[in-house]
Nucleic acid binder design. Structure first.
Length: 416
DNA sequence: TCTGGGGTCCTAGGACCC
DNA sequence: TCTGGGGTCCTAGGACCC
């Protein structure tokens, strides 16, 4: 059976969602990502804004200089997640094998569906129209015999288009494209390929595999396959819809100004730990490795990790590890630009845990579940580890299970 | 121009074990 | 004693994606 994959890529997704909430934005140069004078980068730019040279990942301040009259709006991740779910629901009707590869793109395995949906392009057209009708959002579709070529062709079809690369024409389609168009080839790989005179996918395809392998190792072999449009090796190789569990959960924060005051830095670290722990509980995950990340004023970035002797989802344990790592790593002087907390090495221990964990741990977990509810109802800042409210409780807080892992801000003793 | 935040995957060295 | 080899875990860093 001839394989057939469809890559669905939403057009200017964040901007389009913002336009649904505020139709007056339509047609204007719009930049999603933050205020014009904020530290940060462009998350998405409308097509009108792109005409001024604005593109995603560009610093907001640069964007403001290029187009001072653009409208700058904050991103709304919750809105995007909801719209993404709607898109997913539509796609599911076209194939049971669907996978959201990110918030605004999906892969469908349409192999063998011709009897059901009719000729490929007609089916694609129906899908395209259905997404638009049911979500008010436009997308572009790429169809091909491999996921990689489907993805490249949806990019080629933008905006609001459909492109089907006929079986057997994959290499011919890819050959004239710049190597940067191949997923996985970024700035660095592009530069090292340019250095040996390779600019187009066709140049890459014409090289001996043995040469690429000797020059780039395993990655060289993968590149050779990609230049021919093959999924073999790496991420594209996995089955669509395998819906794997998350591998890590993290939160990070860049400060408005670089700082070296211990108090606000540690408060931020606790806040980030709480956010990570809350999501661990929501997703019923237990993390064994806690990692912090810090970036200095000169943008140099470091990570420090610690594996715990048991997996956890408790604020106090995540925060304790994060704080200890921070105190080991920071000299107390260098100006810090960013802090992050990362949890990984997940273990599935719900169930077993109840038998093994000590009673106070179970109580703590219940307490944090209650905190999660309060936060959902009254906002993130309503409850937190004492230090994040400025009360100065330190690393050892988790050794005080019956005490004060949390306190209400408004009424001091009404916490769970 | 002065560089976000959330992820995945890969590499590589050292510890440790058999 | 002058040296193995494989496997796994841990840590750190980096490329890349949206």
């Amino acid at each position: 059976m001839q394989p057939l994959f469809c890559h669905v890529d939403m057009d200017a997704f964040f901007v389009s969602v913002e336009e649904l909430f505020d139709p007056s934005l339509k047609g204007k140069p719009v930049v999603v990502g933050g205020k014009a004078d904020q530290r940060g980068v462009v998350a998405a730019a409308s097509y009108a804004a792109r005409k001024f040279g604005i593109h995603s990942a560009m610093p907001l301040r640069t964007a403001a200089r290029l187009c001072p009259h653009a409208t700058f709006v904050d991103g709304h991740p919750q809105r995007y997640r909801e719209c993404s779910k709607k898109v997913f629901a539509v796609l599911q009707r076209f194939s049971p094998l669907v996978e959201m590869a990110s918030i605004d793109e999906a892969y469908l395995d349409l192999s063998g569906t011709e009897r059901l949906h009719g000729p490929v392009l007609r089916a694609a057209h129906v899908l395209h129209e259905t997404v638009k009708a049911e979500t008010q959002l436009k997308c572009s579709l790429g169809l091909a015999s491999s996921r990689l070529v489907a993805k490249v062709s949806s990019d080629h079809a933008k905006p609001n288009g459909i492109l089907y690369v006929f079986p057997g024409h994959e290499a011919h389609f890819l050959a004239p494209l710049e190597i940067r168009k191949i997923p996985g080839v970024g700035k660095k790989t592009e530069a090292s390929l340019h250095a040996i005179g390779i600019r187009r996918v066709g140049d890459l395809a014409s090289l001996e595999e043995s040469f690429l392998a000797s020059r780039f190792g395993r990655w060289g072999l993968a590149l050779a396959g990609k230049s021919r449009g093959e999924d073999a090796g790496g991420w594209f190789d996995s089955e669509i819809g395998a819906n794997e569990d998350p591998k890590s959960i993290s939160h990070e924060h860049t400060f408005d100004r670089d700082i070296n005051d211990r108090e606000p830095l540690e408060t931020a670290l606790l806040k980030l730990s709480e956010m990570v722990s809350k999501r661990l509980r929501e997703q019923r995950l237990y993390a064994r490795t806690i990692q912090i990340k810090f970036r200095y004023e000169d943008f140099s970035t470091f990570t420090r990790a610690r594996s715990l002797d048991h997996a956890t989802q408790l604020d106090t344990e995540v925060a304790g590890a994060a704080l200890a790592l921070f105190r080991q790593s920071w000299d107390g002087k260098r100006l810090i630009r960013l802090l992050g907390v990362h949890a990984g090495s997940f273990e599935h221990v719900e169930g077993q845990m109840n038998l093994l964990e000590e009673p106070h741990t179970a109580r703590l977990r219940e307490a944090f579940r209650s905190v999660d509810h309060i936060r959902d109802r009254f906002g993130e800042r309503s409850v937190g580890l004492a230090k994040t409210l400025g009360a100065g409780i330190r690393e050892k807080v988790h050794e005080n299970p019956f005490g004060l892992p949390c306190k209400s801000r408004e009424e001091n003793d009404s916490g769970p």
